[in-house]
Design a binder for these strands. Structure first.
Lengths: 201, 201
DNA sequence: TATACCATGTAATAAGTTACATGATTTG
DNA sequence: CAAATCATGTAACTTATTACATGGTATA
């Protein structure tokens, strides 16, 4: 159900067509709550049916139209009500840590490969999150800039501060995962003296 | 597909009936990869069909039987092959951080409530993970103890070290989430001077 | 005029969630 | 003999994944 609120959040910044919204999604809130286009379009239809957004057809070329969606009063209400509800935490399900727990069954080089992949994965994620953070801090993030312009009820300071806060948490998480995997590499080396060269990195 | 390997991992320690396995699951690897009984039993049937485990009926009372499952040679092979494959990282989908990003729309007391709930949630999780860690370290963890007894190819040291390593990562993650939420409380207070009492905790 | 990209999906599948169901057995 | 718990699920639903589909529009 979070996808709905992620989309509502985007539409509090400005009305958008489905396509623009999907694009904006992937470069902003999609970093926090992933969804493919094939999930976004049907959800938008359901949201119209439920009255939380409105869709109007706008001309596109000589014989085509596209739909521009805007949040309704009911949508604003649903969005703020959602913020008042407790979070439903997902169950723990962590494929990387699951494997790490049974590394005694893996070839030491295989274990090292998994840990290095973990570092690569979180290094890439970290770069993405840090990129968001930088753009939020210097106000070059296009969706944030637009939001600050159009939102009259909230201060630019507060709008940006909570987005910064969110991504800071992710960057710290990435750092923690990288540090954890490095310790794992050291552990594999310690348990398997004479294996591959100890990792420097 | 990870559920299958979590179950195989448990069965490398010893053969178990479905019921015992489900119970053991919930107090051990279920902390890393959650699954309800209603997912475990059907998966066991599929695993028998795929030949990675074998089920034998054992008498239970005068007129009933239960099934005892043991890992097969093919199962051991599937399990170790799984450790050789790269991890498929799930997409990011974080309901708590998603909300935090839009706290400017929330009543400050609502934002505080969400952040306090975050602290409570991770404090509880941390206690569970730390409990596992303590039991692993002093070798009182029943499944680990059994595993160390029955596993002739891996050293007790390595078996325990990787489980420790796994749970250490979770404990650190919990600490990070708690610290993050505390900073969030401070941020809400800073943006809303004169709101509720600043949090001490 | 071809290529990129705009626009919007559908279909099939997989995985996981919640609620409920049923009967046998052991134990106090 | 009642209660707990052992034992094993099924059904209905929701959510998400992957792959594919289709045609219009702008631009070089």
């Amino acid at each position: 159900m979070s996808l709905r609120y992620a989309l509502l959040a985007l539409l509090t910044a400005q009305p958008m067509t489905g396509y623009d919204l999907a694009k904006a999604f992937h470069v902003s809130v999609g970093h926090v709550w992933h969804a493919p286009d094939s999930q976004i379009y049907p959800e938008l239809k359901r949201m119209v049916a439920d009255g939380v957004i409105e869709g109007e057809a706008v001309a596109w070329g000589p014989k085509s139209t596209k739909t521009r969606y805007s949040i309704s009063a009911a949508g604003i209400e649903a969005f703020t009500r959602w913020l008042d509800e407790p979070v439903e935490y997902p169950y723990d399900r962590d494929p990387a840590h699951l494997r790490a727990a049974y590394f005694e069954w893996a070839d030491p080089d295989s274990a090292r490969a998994r840990l290095r992949e973990h570092i690569v994965h979180y290094t890439e994620r970290r770069a993405q999150w840090q990129g968001q953070l930088d753009a939020i801090r210097d106000r070059t993030h296009p969706i944030l800039a637009r939001r600050i312009q159009t939102d009259t009820r909230h201060s630019a300071e507060a709008i940006a501060a909570f987005k910064e806060f969110t991504y800071e948490g992710f960057v710290e998480r990435a750092d923690q995962e990288i540090a954890w995997a490095r310790r794992g590499l050291a552990l594999v080396d310690a348990l398997q003296p004479g294996g591959a060269e100890p990792d420097r990195g």
